[in-house]
Write a protein that binds this DNA or RNA. Structure first.
Lengths: 112, 112
DNA sequence: GCAAATTAATGATTTATTCAAG
DNA sequence: CTTGAATAAATCATTAATTTGC
């Protein structure tokens, strides 16, 4: 995990939490000034440098995109299977939009 | 327990145990195929549909996260208080007001 | 002990995001 | 800038635990 004499930065849970909150709040690629401010704020929770913050945002943004791309790729690969299961599933997934227009109580196709 | 004409799925203890075990084993957001497999496996222990499995994983994941988040938030609040008492230098609240991001839609000035 | 009342868990819906494609 | 696809967050609604007065 995070050895005492670790050669690289190990964010504390608090630091991660705050960074993620900032990311969600719209800080995607902070500029130098923002990075400095963030760094001094987060240094309360543990050792941290500006470059750590810089890298964190770079990596986080990249990995979020990666995640999405992988998901989409997987989907494509699964399309065949999904087609096959189409007639057998009672699935809402994925990202089901049940626009319950008017009350159609069984929200899903139910092809059991 | 589970009323006869219940309007919603009531998992049996066996089903819950297996679902939790799967979750611990790394199944966090199963895709349609996995959901179907899980469903047919669990249907041995009682009535169950794909959408129940889908919802269960969504809810379980969200609520695990919630638990962690609450814990960290508590810690943060404690530390903030301690900090405030110790130095009552009031953390100059830099550029990033993380205004709990579900408040105002345009999230951030975006100085990119 | 036992229900009615109240609170906590949790299944099911809706709403707000995210990234990327067009 | 808008939209599609997928999700995660927030919320609603019902079931289970529990508390309370008798």
């Amino acid at each position: 995990m995070c050895p005492a004499g670790s050669s690289r930065w190990c964010p504390t849970p608090e630091q991660v939490m705050i960074l993620e909150e900032m990311y969600r709040s719209g800080v995607k690629t902070p500029n130098a000034t923002q990075i400095q401010q963030i760094t001094s704020h987060l240094s309360f929770y543990g050792k941290i440098e500006g470059k750590n913050v810089f890298y964190w945002f770079q990596n986080h943004k990249a990995r979020e995109r990666q995640k999405l791309r992988r998901k989409l790729t997987k989907q494509l690969q699964l399309q065949q299977q999904q087609l096959f299961h189409h007639y057998f599933d009672s699935l809402p997934s994925p990202a089901f939009q049940h626009h319950s227009y008017y009350n159609s109580p069984p929200p899903f196709p139910q092809v059991t």
